[in-house]
Design a protein around this nucleic acid. Structure first.
Length: 559
RNA sequence: GCGCUUGUAGCUCAGUUGGAUAGAGCAACGGACUUCUAAUCCGUAGGUCGCAGGUUCGAAUCCUGCCAAGCGCGCCA
């Protein structure tokens, strides 16, 4: 896309080259011009530090060089002025032409405003939540769900072809343990607890009793008649299926929908295991020793090699993961994103090594770490312990604070830093709650249009005829700049896989709107000014609505 | 022992491909509604960016060392 920053970059580059040529100074054709948005309002719309970087090459003081560059700048309809400031920055202020084009574009593009094609249609898979189907989702999974989902939204908005996937760990010991736990509770309810003892590390949550009771209701006590080993598969399948259904329901109600539910079991149905091992061996990263098959992790600066196939013939979890990732890449994804709990961070180098061993770049796998959530109620930490089965479920949080607040809170911090989730705050409808703050801004704009309608005023039909130069107050200029930065902010969020940027952006633009709203009236002012302001708040509404959409948070018209 | 992450205002956090006077919110204090929603706004106050060196025109940002917190290092999953 060609935005003002690209135009500026080119203009500045030409000026620098011309100046260098004139002075007989040799510099590279590919001058790297950096333009950035200044932190301070009075420094204009864009700034460059080019004169500071090149002052040595030119043998001139930065300020003098900056002056020279400014004098060489060709005129451009989008630039109102360029001035030298501070130690040698060049600050640019954009013209009215730019402002009116911006606002007209926002209004015309509506829900599509801000789409940038940095993904260029490449395929990316976001795999997230992927909780073992051994119990209901808890708050930690909720954060992973929100972060993964919003990331997927942002990537799609930035031009990637996105697929959402949930990896079901339906093989292995945990499912075994789940089956045994359910079975033991079943016998316990039947009054024969001796038939199968509750496993030492079994799942102790109350939901296991509920599962056992359901089985008893549906099947009666017929399992008392047969040996526990024979009925175990039934308990495993039943428990796993019902819990997974619950998880799917929770996620759907949370606004998270997956394109693919991928079963771990299915990895072993074909010859993937053999093919993966062959790939690794032919690339020189797998070998046999001590009766086991090893991964040559030391080739990737791990401190020792890792087992793939145990001497008893069973593949390790690491092997499963390698197979799974080979499968992902074989499905044609250009990039694969795994969303993991932060306690798995030590596993990243190994997984990246495996990706390289499969012949891919380590950059093709991105891992997003989700730090723990610290729930607060009444200013005190809500104690949680998975072991004892005492944890707060995602459903409880959703029901207590609502989906909007829950999603917003889960993504409002960098995902790799601890999150304090204040339940009371999320529920409150006061100025302390950021969710209400941003939703309120949206509702207020709708309220303006409702009032406008009752006065018989509506948006101007011919946007080109609106005089946007009337929007010249400090509040209006700030708001326009904020609206203009939406595409690049979203592009940044996509590039950094940083959903929290969206919440910060939303807060900023809402704040700019509220300031504007308190300082100026939209309706009842001069007709020309009223037209321009209606366009301004409509553009603002579009951008707020688009941001909320990315977060999966509703944009209420009335509050 | 090795490794990863974090350390910014009283609290919760942005900012980290080096840039101008380090920014928000909450809490504190003082103000603003006869008007399109006061669920809002405006102002005041609050900082040796963990500590110490280094690199340079310039460091919260890069390098080294140290301190503190959390986590990870299995032929477990």
């Amino acid at each position: 896309m060609t935005g003002p920053s690209d135009i500026l970059r080119e203009l500045i580059r030409d000026a620098v080259l011309e100046l260098a040529d004139e002075r007989g100074i040799k510099i590279e054709e590919s001058v790297e011009v950096e333009v950035e948005r200044p932190k301070r309002e009075e420094h204009g719309d864009w700034a460059t530090n080019i004169a500071l970087q090149y002052s040595k090459v030119f043998g001139e003081k930065p300020r003098d060089l900056a002056m020279g560059i400014v004098n060489k700048l060709g005129s451009n309809p989008y630039i109102e002025k360029a001035e030298v400031a501070g130690p040698g920055f060049i600050n640019f202020t954009l013209s009215r032409k730019w402002i009116s084009e911006l606002l007209i574009n926002v209004i015309k593009d509506g829900p599509d405003f801000g789409r940038v094609n940095v993904g260029k249609g490449r395929k990316v898979q976001v795999e997230f939540v992927s909780a073992n189907p051994t119990g209901p989702l808890h708050v930690g999974h909720g954060r992973g769900a929100a972060v993964g989902d919003v990331c997927a939204n942002i990537l799609a908005f930035a031009g990637w072809d996105v697929q959402r996937e949930y990896y079901i760990n339906d093989a292995g010991l945990q499912i075994d343990l789940l089956g045994k736990s359910t079975q033991a509770r079943y016998f316990e309810i039947c009054g024969e607890p001796g038939k199968a003892p509750f496993p030492e590390d079994g799942y102790k949550g109350a939901y296991i009793y509920e599962l056992a009771q359901q089985i008893l209701d549906e099947e009666g006590n017929r399992f008392l008649e047969i040996p526990p080993e024979e009925s175990l598969p039934y308990f495993k399948d039943y428990a796993c299926r019902v819990i997974l259904e619950g998880i799917k329901k929770d996620l759907a109600d949370f606004g998270v929908n997956f394109d693919m539910w991928f079963s771990e079991k299915s990895l072993y149905e074909g010859d993937l295991l053999q093919r993966t091992l062959e790939t690794l061996k032919s690339n020189g990263y797998a070998y046999e020793a001590d009766g086991a098959t090893w991964f040559k992790a030391t080739a990737f600066s791990d401190d020792k090699d890792r087992v793939l196939i145990r001497s008893n013939g069973a593949p390790t979890y690491f092997m499963s993961d390698i197979m799974y990732h080979k499968n992902k890449f074989d499905r044609g994804f250009d990039m694969v994103i795994d969303v993991w709990g932060a306690d798995h961070h030590g596993y990243i180098p190994r997984m990246k090594a495996a990706v390289q061993a499969l012949g891919r770049s380590p950059e093709d796998l991105q891992v997003l770490l989700i730090q723990f959530v610290n729930l607060l109620r009444g200013g005190k930490q809500v104690s949680m312990s998975t072991r004892s089965g005492e944890f707060v479920t995602l459903r409880e949080v959703m029901e207590e604070v609502g989906v909007d607040a829950a999603r917003y809170f889960f993504v409002m911090r960098r995902s790799d830093s601890h999150l304090d989730f204040d339940l009371d705050l999320a529920k409150s409808s006061t100025n302390e709650n950021p969710v209400f703050y941003v939703q309120y801004a949206h509702a207020r704009i709708h309220s303006i249009f409702r009032e406008a309608k009752s006065r018989g005023v509506s948006m101007p039909e011919n946007l080109e005829s609106v005089d946007f130069s009337l929007l010249s107050s400090q509040e209006e200029v700030s708001l326009i700049r904020k609206i203009g930065s939406f595409p690049e902010e979203m592009a940044k969020a996509a590039e950094e896989l940083a959903p929290h940027r969206v919440t910060f952006y939303l807060y900023d633009i809402s704040s700019a709107f509220h300031s504007f709203y308190n300082a100026h009236r939209v309706l009842g002012v001069e007709p020309e000014l009223e037209k321009a302001r209606l366009c301004l708040v409509e553009a603002c509404r579009v951008v707020i609505a688009n941001s909320l959409k990315l977060l999966g948070v509703s944009a209420p018209e009335k509050m």
